[in-house]
């Protein structure tokens, strides 16, 4: 699923990486625990999380994940956005809960890892 489609489904705002919305992700993983992300994500998946700190970006970077969606209306600060931009990671945020955001994406065809 293309990132622009994900943006549309979640009614999300893009905070950085707008130029990469044509990138495709083949799966998604929703979690606030970064060790679980490191343990379960097997491919270049989309990360949905409510953890708003630099470790979300660092974890995504370790796994070559191309996009993070911050859920529950959480807004990352400028340091986090700068880190993501430097690593080529698109960042979005949406007001949905993690459950609803995951559900909308799943029912639109984006499967879990």
């Amino acid at each position: 699923m293309k990132l622009y489609k994900i943006k549309e489904i979640l009614n999300a705002s893009v905070l950085c990486g707008e130029e990469q919305l044509d990138i495709e992700v083949d799966s998604a993983f929703s979690c606030d625990l970064m060790s679980d992300v490191l343990s379960y994500v097997k491919s270049e998946a989309l990360l949905l999380t409510g953890l708003v700190n630099p470790q979300a970006v660092r974890t995504a970077d370790m796994l070559d994940m191309k996009c993070i969606v911050f859920v529950r209306g959480k807004l990352p600060d400028s340091v986090i956005i700068k880190m993501a931009r430097e690593r080529g990671i698109t960042v979005m945020c949406c007001g949905l809960t993690m459950y609803c955001a995951s559900g909308y994406l799943f029912s639109s065809g984006l499967r879990g890892t």
Binding site: D32, L33, M34, S35, L38, S39, N53, Q55, T59
Partner: peptide
């Protein structure tokens, strides 16, 4: 936990 860790998966992940 504030960092998003502390779930007891670190060493097992390293082993894996």
């Amino acid at each position: 936990r504030d960092l998003g860790f502390g779930a007891g998966m670190g060493l097992p992940n390293m082993k894996r």
